[in-house]
């Protein structure tokens, strides 16, 4: 069963987004995505200061059998990358929604519509079928 926390927003490409109290957002990949990739062996996060458009490839998650791009759910500027992942990529497998976050961003354009937890669960149900 896939873990889909109710307080997060999702994309159809399996990224999640969390609003932080300071107005920034935190971004990672969903439990479903980490499970589909298998044991991660390498994670590359974007450098601080990089400006991203919504839908732009910005990070890479790599397992022994797959390497996948992560796309930014929103437009904005990267303010932090999860440095822990360089030596511990398995954090994304173990705690995809907490310690396995990929990056934090400052939003500079109005947010596009993202999926809520229910909508993402439905999206997964269709995809898995």
């Amino acid at each position: 069963m896939n873990d889909i926390p109710a307080d997060l927003h999702y994309t159809t490409k399996h990224e999640w987004l969390r609003r932080l109290p300071n107005g920034q957002v935190e971004i990672g990949i969903s439990d479903y995505a980490q499970n589909a990739l298998g044991d991660l062996v390498f994670v590359e996060v974007p450098e601080i200061g990089r400006r991203l458009r919504a839908g732009e490839a910005c990070a890479v998650v790599e397992s022994v059998k797959a390497a996948s791009d992560v796309y930014s759910p929103i437009s904005g500027t990267v303010v932090a990358g999860n440095a822990e992942l360089a030596s511990h990529p398995e954090l994304v497998n173990l705690e995809p929604y907490t310690a396995g976050w990929l990056m934090r961003m400052e939003i500079d354009a109005p947010e596009p519509t993202l999926l809520d937890a229910d909508a993402y669960a439905k999206h997964l149900a269709i995809q898995v079928r």
Binding site: E62, S63, A66
Partner: peptide, 10 residues
């Protein structure tokens, strides 16, 4: 190793 960079996966 590092096969994820290669053509048959990527």
């Amino acid at each position: 190793t590092l096969q994820a960079r290669e053509q048959h996966i990527r």
